[in-house]
Design a protein around this nucleic acid. Structure first.
Length: 392
DNA sequence: AAAGCGTGTCATTGG
DNA sequence: CACCAATGACACGCT
């Protein structure tokens, strides 16, 4: 079945390719997301798929729908059905294997897309990539230049010839499906170059530049601002530093004292580009540490505030309990006072020896300890006056 | 697929 | 005025 041969192709090819592991620094390995972006440009027809989930191993897979086109470019799409492995093995002729091996070779050449394309041009049927700038895109994007150009917009080289390569699926490419392994290889090599050099893989192709300063000014500066995963950035600076032959590691540049740092520029050995890069590296490194400290402080503040909230909650609970206790005591005292008051009142007698009516009179306790019997209306009017004074 | 988190970077600000 | 640390905002990758 077609799915069977698809499996076999994948196995044989990936075997070949995995034998020639392209080992990348861990920090340089494209992340899954990057791969998915690359994957977006895949087409449903014959295709090469960069499987960089384990980017040390380049995995080549052929989609089942049109793998015949890769295997045999002369077969028109849909005109031939390959339905079993025998057919496939016939199609998987030496020429195809050569192509595959050449791709592997190309990958061994540090993904030098130009070299890869040269191999293919020498070996295949002459079908060429419709890339207008094959001479400029991969070659002019050599590692050194990309790094040098980091601080110079003028050195940017666009990737117009590969529009859509990174941005997403481009239907036109399906028309070239049988065209190809080597197109795809070059294209993916190119994408890899982009990723390795300046991480512009997240940019639309027309903005993908080699060696351009990654900070885009103007209205696009936020959207297109260069950003990469944390693990990639440092090595990015390190590679730039190496490319410019800066005689210090990124760590040294960042951590050296300000005096040592200034001494770097005192002897005029450094070019403008080097100086600019060194300053940028130091600034980024310092800022990175500052951001880390800032976030730590922020977390500390949050933790402290959470502690404060907890303590205040506990204090509130405690005060509420105290308040309840005091209210209880006050009520108890009021009850006792009431009992005492009634008791005292029940013992009082007027001039005729009659009990005093508690609805008409009240007891008043003076500051000197003496007690008076006062008419209740007097007490009430005095209370009114007091309350009015308080309002004023 | 969406949300949340961690991180690096850039712009800005205040010391 | 230059420098630098601090910080808000943003984008990205990862879970």
């Amino acid at each position: 079945s077609s799915s069977n041969y698809n499996l076999n192709i994948s196995r044989s090819i990936s075997h070949d390719i995995c034998l020639h592991d392209v080992t990348l620094p861990k920090s340089d390995q494209p992340s899954k997301r990057n791969v998915s972006e690359v994957g977006n440009s895949e087409i449903n027809h014959s295709r090469l798929k960069l499987d960089a989930t384990n980017s040390s191993c380049l995995n080549l897979s052929l989609s089942r729908t049109n793998s015949t086109e890769i295997l045999n470019p002369s077969v028109e799409r849909g005109s031939t059905d390959v339905t079993n492995q025998d057919d496939l093995s016939v199609l998987l002729d030496d020429a195809v294997l050569d192509e595959i091996n050449l791709m592997v070779l190309a990958m061994e050449e540090s993904f030098d897309a130009l070299k890869a394309s040269e191999f293919f041009e020498e070996s295949d049927s002459g079908l060429s990539l419709n890339s207008s700038n094959s001479s400029e895109s991969p070659n002019s994007s050599s590692y050194e230049e990309g790094a040098v150009g980091y601080s110079s917009d003028a050195e940017s080289v666009s990737c117009d010839g590969l529009e859509g390569a990174v941005g997403g699926y481009q239907p036109e490419h399906s028309e070239l499906s049988s065209v190809n392994c080597h197109n795809a290889c070059r294209y993916h090599s190119f994408v890899l170059e982009c990723i390795y050099q300046n991480h512009t893989y997240n940019l639309p192709p027309n903005q993908m530049t080699f060696g351009s300063k990654y900070h885009y000014s103007g209205s696009q500066k936020l959207k297109n601002r260069y950003t990469t995963s944390a693990s990639v950035n440092l090595s990015c600076d390190e590679r730039r530093a190496r490319a410019l032959r800066i005689p210090h590691s990124v760590h040294e540049i960042v951590s050296m004292s300000i005096d040592s740092f200034n001494e770097l520029f005192s002897n005029n050995d450094l070019t403008e580009a080097q100086i600019s890069l060194i300053r940028d590296i130091r600034h980024r490194g310092k800022n990175k540490v500052a951001a880390q400290n800032c976030r730590k402080r922020k977390l500390d503040v949050i933790v402290n505030l959470e502690d404060d909230v907890q303590q205040l909650k506990m204090q509130r609970e405690k005060l509420l309990k105290e308040k309840a206790q005091y209210n209880k005591s006050v009520n108890l005292i009021k009850q006792k006072l009431n009992v005492l008051y009634r008791d005292v009142f029940s013992r009082l007698r007027d001039d005729h020896g009659q009990p005093v009516n508690p609805n008409q009179y009240a007891l008043r306790c003076n500051s000197d300890g003496s007690m008076l019997i006062v008419p209740l209306r007097m007490v009430k009017s005095e209370q009114k006056q007091k309350s009015q004074k308080k309002k004023k």
